[in-house]
């Protein structure tokens, strides 16, 4: 036999409004703000070449033809060609990110399980194990 059903209280309009404000603050504060402040984005570096030519930029004749068809000359293609990702691995940061991800999932499943036991107890009865 199922346990007595939990009856949540009705949320007032004002509290609903506050919840919506919180959600918007979380979305814009954690996701958009780092981008707006240029704290997030691709980690790249550009190696400058003075007075670039196709030869200095190490482009084959076929590649030069393609660049030209796209409306680029060596000067305007320079930054595109010379910009590379920086893949030097910062191990402490990598380990920190891995720990954060693990903790996030660990707590997510743990808290979910505690809530799930309430759901099952109420639906099927037998109390919470």
């Amino acid at each position: 036999m199922a346990d007595k059903a939990y009856q949540p209280e009705e949320q007032s309009a004002a509290m609903q409004f506050l919840d919506i404000v919180f959600l918007l603050a979380a979305i814009f504060g954690t996701l958009l703000l780092p981008i707006y402040l240029h704290l997030a984005g691709a980690a790249t570096e550009t190696t400058k070449i003075d007075n670039p030519t196709w030869d200095l930029l190490k482009q084959t004749p076929g590649q030069v033809a393609a660049w030209t068809a796209l409306g680029k000359d060596p000067a305007s293609a320079h930054d595109i060609i010379q910009t590379r990702f920086n893949y030097v691995i910062d191990w402490p940061t990598l380990i920190a990110v891995a720990v954060i991800l693990f903790l996030y999932f660990f707590l997510l499943f743990r808290f979910s399980d505690s809530e799930y036991r309430d759901v099952i107890a109420e639906k099927f009865g037998g109390g919470k194990k």
Binding site: P34, A43, Y104, L108
Partner: peptide
């Protein structure tokens, strides 16, 4: 290359959780 965004996104999900 996009480590900062990874942290920002996980932080968002952790906060709302």
């Amino acid at each position: 290359g996009y480590g900062t965004q990874l942290i920002a996104m996980v932080a968002f999900y952790a906060i709302v959780s």
